[in-house]
Lab assay of single mutants.
Amino acid sequence: MQFKLIINGKTLKGEITLEAVDAAEAEKKFKQYANDNGIDGEWTYDDATKTFTVTE
């Protein structure tokens, strides 16, 4: 399945997509990506659109 991450950071904004088996795997990958890029914020997930959002 394809999942999307919307980044609303203080210095980094944008979207990325990835393939994952389920939402838990996608969340783990997205949070690792955010951590690697210094993004720390409030996370939400919309199951209907398979979209994660992180807002700093």
Rank of each mutant, 00 (worst) to 15 (best):
T11I: 14
K4D: 04
N37F: 05
G41F: 02
F30S: 13
Q32P: 02
E56K: 02
T53Q: 07
I39L: 09
K50N: 11
K50P: 01
I16N: 12
T53H: 05
L5V: 02
D46P: 00
T44Q: 12
A24F: 11
G14W: 07
V21A: 14
E15H: 03
K13N: 15
G9N: 15
K10D: 12
E42R: 08
T53W: 09
A34Q: 02
I39V: 14
K28I: 15
A26N: 00
A24N: 11
T53P: 00
K4Y: 07
T17H: 13
N8S: 07
I6F: 15
K13C: 03
E25M: 13
K13S: 13
N35K: 11
A34T: 12
E25C: 04
A24S: 04
D40F: 12
K28S: 12
V21P: 14
K31S: 04
D22I: 09
A48C: 03
K50V: 06
T55P: 01
I16R: 15
K50F: 15
D22A: 11
V54G: 00
E25L: 10
Y45A: 02
Q32L: 05
A23R: 12
A23S: 13
F52G: 00
A23F: 06
A48W: 12
L18F: 07
I16L: 10
A20L: 05
T17S: 13
K13I: 12
G41E: 01
I16Y: 08
N37G: 10
I6N: 03
G41H: 01
K29E: 09
L18W: 08
Y45P: 00
I16S: 08
T44L: 05
A23H: 03
T17V: 07
T53F: 02
Y33Q: 06
A48I: 12
I16H: 15
G41L: 01
G9A: 13
T17A: 06
K29H: 07
N35L: 13
D22S: 04
E27K: 05
K10L: 10
D36H: 14
E56D: 04
V21F: 12
W43D: 00
T53L: 12
D47M: 12
T11L: 08
G38K: 10
E27M: 15
V21S: 15
W43M: 07
K13L: 15
D22C: 04
Q2A: 05
T49P: 09
K13A: 14
G38A: 14
A24K: 04
N35T: 05
G38Q: 08
T51E: 12
F30W: 02
W43V: 01
I6W: 08
N8I: 14
T11A: 12
A23P: 05
I7N: 02
A20S: 11
A48N: 15
E56P: 02
N8T: 11
G9V: 08
L12S: 05
A24P: 07
W43Q: 01
A24W: 04
A24C: 03
E56V: 07
Q2D: 03
N35S: 11
L12D: 11
E42D: 14
V54W: 02
E25F: 12
N37T: 15
G41I: 01
E19Q: 10
G9C: 03
N8H: 09
L5G: 03
L18M: 09
A48L: 10
E56S: 02
D47K: 10
F3A: 00
E25W: 10
N8A: 06
I7H: 14
K31C: 02
L12N: 06
F52T: 02
E19T: 15
N35I: 04
D46R: 13
T49C: 05
T51Y: 13
E15C: 03
L5P: 00
A24V: 15
N8L: 07
L5D: 00
D22F: 07
E15L: 02
A26V: 03
I6H: 06
K4P: 00
D22E: 07
F30D: 00
E15V: 04
E27S: 10
F52W: 09
V54K: 00
A48E: 10
E27Y: 09
T44M: 06
T55K: 09
T44E: 15
N37V: 08
G41W: 13
K31E: 03
E56C: 02
D40T: 11
K50H: 13
I7A: 14
V54L: 07
K50I: 13
G38T: 12
G41D: 01
I6G: 07
E56A: 03
G14R: 14
M1Q: 13
F3N: 00
D46I: 13
G14C: 04
K31M: 10
V54I: 12
T44G: 04
K10T: 11
K10G: 11
E56Q: 06
I39R: 01
E25S: 08
W43A: 01
T53G: 12
K13T: 11
G9L: 14
K4Q: 06
I6C: 02
K50Q: 11
I7Q: 02
L18G: 13
A24E: 15
Q32C: 04
Y45K: 04
K28C: 05
K4H: 12
F30R: 00
T55S: 08
L18D: 06
A48G: 10
T44F: 10
I6L: 10
T55M: 05
A26M: 02
K50D: 10
E42T: 10
Y33V: 15
T55L: 04
Q2K: 11
E27C: 04
N37S: 06
F52K: 00
T17I: 09
K50S: 15
Q2I: 04
F30V: 14
D46A: 14
G38R: 07
D47A: 10
L12W: 15
K31I: 09
F3S: 00
E19R: 06
T53A: 10
T44W: 05
E56I: 04
T55H: 05
E19K: 07
G9D: 07
L18Q: 09
K10H: 06
D46G: 06
I39N: 02
I39Q: 03
E42V: 05
T44P: 00
G38H: 07
N37P: 01
T55E: 13
T17N: 12
E27Q: 08
A24G: 15
